[in-house]
Nucleic acid binder design. Structure first.
Lengths: 343, 343
DNA sequence: AATCATTTCCAAAGCGCTTTGAATAACGCA
DNA sequence: TGCGTTATTCAAAGCGCTTTGGAAATGATT
């Protein structure tokens, strides 16, 4: 069933039928009702491609996911983020277009998205510190919104980020308040912007109380369980182990826990742990009481909001860049306690 | 830059330019070269929508993800599956269209996909036992491929599945060989087809050696860490605890491990654990030696293969339904050992 | 009844591509 | 030179929609 067939059935022109369905005012209410009913009855919906060819709008948002080191962004948070964004797209009539590409294909992918006019805008995932995608997308004049930020980019662009500096500063300061002095950081890859900021927050807190950081306790890597495990085992076996560990992901924290228990220590007693909790749906941080003390911010909510902001921007060109900085909450769980006195 | 502009520059007709670019034989090689170079130079790619309006092919595959209980399918395996599929789509020039919808919107979403001609086919995720989507898609005549199977559907359709019966039978039999008699199963939701089959495999193995199942030891639920934890705690505290536990996901196994350690038992000694390992990128089952003994099958590979099969089917209509049953390997890790003798 | 403003509807153009059917150019051979 | 082939190229139609500019019908006003 296409528009012509439907208008033939109704004895109306395609113009009128189209306007009726798209809510234009210059069509009689009763006609509109008739048209709507007929469309429903015959199962008519406009062909996406014909429509967007005519309107010039793709009604689709792109997500380009780099799959460089195989598990950089096909990430633990990825699914929840796009589930959040997808909800908004669905409500607003947008499609979600996802491309997984290797690092070297990335630029070409964005250029193609523009040339082929497949999308009206894109969400940029996992920004690194001086991210080439931001100037690229500006040059291409493709509307975009960054989930996160890119430190060294100075031009104005739209982003939504968690205040990672504040979050880690807060978490670290809490541990210091509890008497900890040797605090380790198991971070995500520090060429990523978020990880860099977290490190900064961590260092800020240490320096505020005149603790000099120990490079041995600062590690970054893929955010996997084994990374947390092996790092922790190594540190605990050293001469001067940490009494507390911060992790950039709940997945890392799971590995930390395994290591701690395997080494015969008790989490929350001998060793305190705080993780960054993205509220991943299938890895909830406990049900009632949190397992891990954590700084927490929902990545699914971030996905929703990113989608909203981007679409807003697409619909009202010329608005200033949207920039939102979210605070992460510190929530207390069972994984932290006061530092034991040195014997 | 569009086709007309490009052909104007070249002094050729749109027809010739189009044919040159699309590799038709009736264009001189030298002309083709000229055209290609000009296209490259001026950054021309055909507009996706115009092209697919003309060809009648969307060059896109749909994935409709139900988000019913909020974390049913925005699942732990989801990201890896679509990353695998996405790789194939990219290579073959297809786009990936994802819709997250609530349960009650599902049927309408599929109907709209057809009416609006947005996709050439769909992958069906997370089939339940008597899945309504299969007859629906058959009625709509939209090509589809099911990741998994639907037990009670008898008509022929395309699917790719892991042999879940065999996998759990094998895992259970292994535990029995090790002397275990009280073996628990922490399964996924058993209205899902895969979970049902796993249960069947588990029961088969028990019955083969005349063990009667104990409903107390058979649990199903959301595949989360807390589910594994709370189920295990409860069972271990009972009068007659299991000596081995099977889980349908590595995520559940993480909770099981936490519970076991919290109860002061040792995994692989007092309690053996085997999980189903989907080879999730950010939750690898150890690096060298596997942490958990597991039945293993890569969900990312499954994504790839599903994409290939579906596109094949789209390109050659009238072929018989593709059906592939993959065997899961049993790999030995540190989480299993012989049953301790009863004292 | 005549005039004008509104309301309601429509024909046709255009979005950018592919593809059909036909025209032209190039070539070999009598 | 002239004719039939074959190799190249092209004009135009069509994919299904939106939208411009205008026509017809209706209603209000004199």
């Amino acid at each position: 069933m296409n528009l012509r067939e439907l208008s033939d059935i109704l004895g109306l022109s395609q113009t009128t039928v189209s306007r009726a369905l798209n809510g234009f005012p210059e069509v009689k209410e009763e006609t509109r009702r008739r048209v709507r009913e007929a469309a429903e009855k015959h199962g008519y919906s406009p062909d996406t491609r014909a429509r967007s060819l005519a309107t010039g709008r793709a009604m689709a948002i792109g997500h380009v996911i780099p799959v460089s080191s195989q598990h950089q962004m096909a990430n633990v948070v990825f699914a929840d983020f796009i589930a959040g964004a997808g909800e908004v797209y669905g409500n607003l009539g947008y499609d979600m277009l996802i491309s997984f590409v290797t690092d070297d294909e990335q630029e070409q992918t964005y250029r193609n998205l523009v040339r082929k006019r497949s999308v009206d805008g894109v969400i940029v995932h996992g920004p690194v510190r001086d991210d080439f995608r931001i100037p690229l997308l500006q040059e291409l004049e493709l509307p975009f919104l960054v989930h996160g930020r890119s430190s060294d980019v100075i031009s104005s662009y739209s982003w939504l980020d968690v205040d990672n500096v504040q979050a880690l500063r807060r978490a670290t300061a809490y541990l210091i308040d509890q008497g900890h002095r040797r605090i380790a950081l198991l971070n995500g890859p520090e060429h990523m912007d978020f990880a860099w900021r977290r490190r900064t927050g961590y260092l800020n807190a240490l320096h505020e109380v005149d603790i000099t950081e120990d490079p041995y306790l600062m590690r970054d890597g893929e955010m996997t369980e084994p990374f947390g495990y092996s790092s922790t085992v190594e540190m605990l076996r050293s001469d001067n182990p940490p009494s507390a560990i911060l992790t950039s992901s709940i997945v890392i924290a799971l590995g930390v826990r395994r290591a701690i228990e395997e080494c015969g220590r008790t989490i929350g007693k001998e060793i305190s742990v705080i993780c960054f909790d993205d509220r991943i749906s299938y890895l909830p941080n406990g049900t009632e009481e949190p397992i891990f003390t954590a700084v927490r911010s929902s990545v699914s909510d971030a996905g929703k909001r990113c989608a909203e902001l981007l679409i807003e921007q697409i619909n009202t060109p010329g608005t200033p860049a949207a920039q939102e900085l979210w605070r992460a909450d510190l929530i207390l769980g069972q994984s932290t306690g006061p530092a034991l006195q040195k014997v």
